[in-house]
Amino acid sequence: MDQIQQLENKSIHILREAYREFKSLCMLWSIGKDSTVLLWLTRKAFFGHVPFPLVHIDTSYKIPEMIAYRDRLALEWRLNMVVGQNVEAIRAKRTFPDGALSRIECCRALKSEALKHTLSGEWPRMRLNHSTGKYEVDENREPFTGVIVGVRADEEGSRSKERYFSPRDKQNDWDVDDQPPELWNYYKTDFAPGTHLRVHPLLDWTELNLWEYIERENIPIVGLYFDRGEGKRYRSLGCEPCTNPVESNAISVSQIVAELRSGKFANIAERSGRAQDAEDGNTLETLRRDGYM
């Protein structure tokens, strides 16, 4: 069994553990390569089915192509698609692009806050109606107690300290210094009322592993990751005003794999194009303690 197969099997095992243990489970889908691979693994784990809702936090500043791609796959794969948003902040123009907030404050408002209140059900959730192709207010406001997230340990420092099953308290806070033990195939799947767990099936994957897997499985990936004639491509996707592409001529998955293998980016962070990271002292720990993905 090669490296990628081992990673695939472990991720599937973790997804099945999560599905068995959590009555109210969802998966965050940011439309990026990581969570899209996670979605693919989910279909593999459940024999072609995706038995829980996918939650997307729409900051309204996502690159439009991401949203189009999201809705295309959601309809094609018959996904239970749920979208949450900080409608108030966007309406009141309390954002970074509007000049009202710093990047970090904006992330906190449009992502962390929106995520927190969407998961808890306090803010309305919009659900895709497959017969009309439109989003409608979801009747279900039950809080999610298990949230599957596609973070990887090699992305940046704070994520390398994560567990596969990582508890969050009522405030969504993460206690980095007191984490549960994980050994063999046993994870923390019991949790006190009011708390919830983040589940990280991709923790052991590297950026290269992901692209090798995308190539092997032929997973449809949003086109923004490829150079389309401008000598640039996105390596990590986020909001348009805070995400910059990298110099690259890779126009296909196999060229991205070759580019990563060449060591071209060995000394450049995957998320270096994400401006909020730099503002957070390059640790993301501040944001993540507050519930950022």
Binding site: A153, D154, E155, E156, G157, S158, S160, K161, F265, A266, N267, I268, A269, E270, R271, S272, D277, A278, N282, T283, L284
Partner: peptide, 13 residues
């Protein structure tokens, strides 16, 4: 202190 430079080194891994 420089994890985010992509070196991905931390005491954790």
């Amino acid at each position: 202190n420089e994890q985010a430079q992509g070196i991905t080194i931390d005491t954790a891994r």
